[in-house]
Amino acid sequence: MTLGVRNRRVDLLRGVSILLVLLHHFNIAYHLPDTALGRWLLPDFVRAVARNGNYGVTIFFVISGFLITSNSEKRWGTLPRTDVRSFYGLRIARIVPCLLLLLLIVNGLDASGVTIFGSHDPATHEPVSRWLVNLAALTFWMNVLIGHMGWVNYPLGVLWSLSVEEVFYLTFPLLARLLRDTRWIVGVWLAVIVAGPVYRLYHQGDEGGFLFAYFASFDGIAIGCCTALLARGRRLDEQVARIAQPVVIAAMVSLYLWKSIGATNVYGVTLMALFAGFLLLAGDAHPQGPLVRRNGVLRCVEWFGRQSYELYLFHLVVLGLMRSVWPPASVHGDEKLALLAFFMIAASGLAALISRWYSEPLNRRLRSALVRVQERSGARIPQSGTA
């Protein structure tokens, strides 16, 4: 995989993940099993498909760790040579513009009196300080706030996963420079992978603990990081990959549909992450994906994957506005399917506009500025890229 060149299989996996998240959040607002989908596919099946969107986030974590690690090695040769300042600069260029825009939109709608965009304690319905919620978003402890108080702000709740990622990546270059040996770095990541299910085991019954806490989610990112190093060392045999991929995909689907993530998270999160890591390892040798090029449905899913960051951050803004105009209690039966179609079109359109005219141009400009500042350091920093 070359810096600045998109891996179509990665985008396909991202696309599947973001669609699962979108469906999950829509189903929470507008119950889908009592629509025609439930009649055609059985209510229990629709419920099973829609309830485990958090596994989509687990797959995102794996992809993120995979891309960050592989791109860091391509930029600096080895992980111990990672340039700390450049690493953080690249993360800021990609993450912060969209984060600031999201906060601007949500705070503006809250100030305008749109109730669902305000911050409230879900247990007592008492207001929560807007400044506290903004601080948690900007300093990456939204997951801690959610674990302590619940989902205090509807559209900003998605930032729990960004908090997990960015705290992990805060340590990424520091760990690499401190340990100075890839084997020791991998040793720390393996310890994080082992700690994940143990942490979740001891936080059963506490959604803030087994879903949103740092150490409940770090293992997915660490698995992605280790997968990138495996891909660098040896490509999976093509015949083995061809035989094993359908088996792994079937295992992922079975795990996803079997029970809710509340019942399977102890081992399920790690298993889903390992399965996703295998798919990345198997597809790394053929990033352009001829199957994706030939299949219109897969190309559509891949498109969603290319917009996945913007879609993830802003889809609850669209859904929050929809809930304000069409309260769930007033929508019945197959009317929900029309709203589902509208939601998918509106959310994806908004994400595409933000990506095309805001986040990607700013990303390129910030990276170009970083290149100019760091050009004497010898670090190879691309002006475009996916991570």
Rank of each mutant, 00 (worst) to 15 (best):
A231I: 07
G224E: 06
V194R: 02
Q239P: 01
V192Q: 01
R234T: 08
W184T: 02
A241H: 11
E207F: 14
A251Y: 09
Y169C: 03
V194Q: 00
A231W: 06
A231V: 14
F218H: 07
R242D: 11
I243L: 15
V164H: 02
F212A: 08
S217N: 15
P246C: 11
V167W: 11
V240D: 06
I243A: 13
G209R: 08
A244Q: 09
V198H: 05
I249W: 13
E165G: 04
R180Y: 01
V192K: 01
G209K: 10
L179A: 01
D237H: 14
V248W: 09
C225N: 13
R180E: 10
G209A: 10
R242F: 05
T171Q: 03
G233C: 07
F210N: 08
G233I: 01
T171M: 13
G205P: 02
E207Y: 13
I249G: 12
D181F: 01
L230E: 04
V247M: 14
I223Q: 07
V164W: 04
Y202P: 00
L175T: 07
E166C: 06
D237R: 14
V188Y: 01
T182S: 13
C226F: 06
Q245T: 15
E165Q: 04
F210H: 15
A216N: 03
P197I: 06
R232F: 05
I193C: 03
I221A: 02
A241Y: 10
G205N: 03
V248F: 11
V164N: 14
G220P: 00
F172K: 05
R200F: 06
L175C: 06
F212D: 07
